[in-house]
Amino acid sequence: MAGEKVIHLTDAEFGKKVLEAAIPTLLDFWAPWCGPCRAIGPVIEELAEEFAGKVQIAKMNVDENPATPGKYAVRAIPTLILFKNGQVLEQITGAVGKAQLSAMINKAL
């Protein structure tokens, strides 16, 4: 089923599951009150299917997890940050298309 491959992360899990992860992570900062965040939801799920095993596709609710967005100065959502080896490789803000996100993720491979 679509959607099962997207990981939902909390502030507490961020270090271990993203910074120390063996593979790159695309982290989608979102909130339920943000229409564009909901609009790109299906795209995020498709990306999780397509990049399964190669890149983790994760989401973090910024309402419930303020620390991580604070650390990365996220002040707009959706913001998508691509992490590799504990570093920020690239960052994109706003609802962008699947092609642009795929191209961004491919840079981490």
Binding site: A31, C34, G35, C37, R75, A76, T79, G94
Partner: peptide, 15 residues
């Protein structure tokens, strides 16, 4: 953009 410049008040107001 995304660091204080926004085009969506509903998305980013709570920050």
């Amino acid at each position: 953009t995304g660091k204080g410049v926004s085009y969506c008040a509903t998305c980013d107001g709570p920050f």
